[in-house]
């Protein structure tokens, strides 16, 4: 469950901004969940829930948005989505789950076969926005 560590990171950021902004009430936290990392949402939510137990935010303020993983080849310019890539094995997916950059180890451009491609979107866990109350 290394989702716990990522949930911990998200909460740490929210907590920092909460403190830096005079402990204003947290209204919403929008979290982008990139497809590439294959986050188990149940484990991630459980992590949030447990870590939030002693904090002044409730899980209700957290909103999740899934983002498809898209790539572009630096060699030939072809763009593709994760779902368009030939299926990866279980071990390869597991490696990418731990460390999304392992995608560069196991994936190749479906157009020209180059390992030199960029991940454009959908890597892992990022915070899209945090809204604090004005009062």
């Amino acid at each position: 469950m290394h989702e716990w560590a990522l949930a911990d990171a998200v909460i740490s950021t929210v907590e920092r901004l909460y403190e830096e902004n005079g402990r204003k009430r947290v209204l919403s936290v929008r979290v982008l969940i990139g497809e590439l990392q294959h986050i188990e949402m149940e484990a991630f939510s459980l992590g949030l829930q447990n870590l939030l137990a002693e904090r002044p935010f409730s899980t209700d303020v957290f909103h999740f948005e899934k983002e498809k993983a898209s790539f572009r080849c630096n060699a030939c310019g072809k763009g593709w989505l994760l779902e368009q890539h030939p299926e990866l094995g279980e071990e390869e997916l597991e490696a990418i789950h731990f460390l999304p950059e392992a995608a560069h180890v196991y994936m190749r451009c479906p157009g020209c076969g180059s390992p030199d491609f960029a991940l454009e979107k959908g890597r892992g866990v990022t915070i899209k926005s945090i809204e604090l109350s004005d009062d």
Binding site: L6, A95, L99
Partner: peptide
């Protein structure tokens, strides 16, 4: 080590990807 995930395969990363991988390892 990154090798825990890449085993004995080549690791073709550009600079920004190296930084991303390092941040991830340090964070988890």
């Amino acid at each position: 080590s990154f090798a825990a995930f890449s085993r004995e395969h080549a690791v073709p990363l550009r600079g920004s990807e190296v930084s991303q991988a390092m941040l991830e390892l340090l964070a988890i």
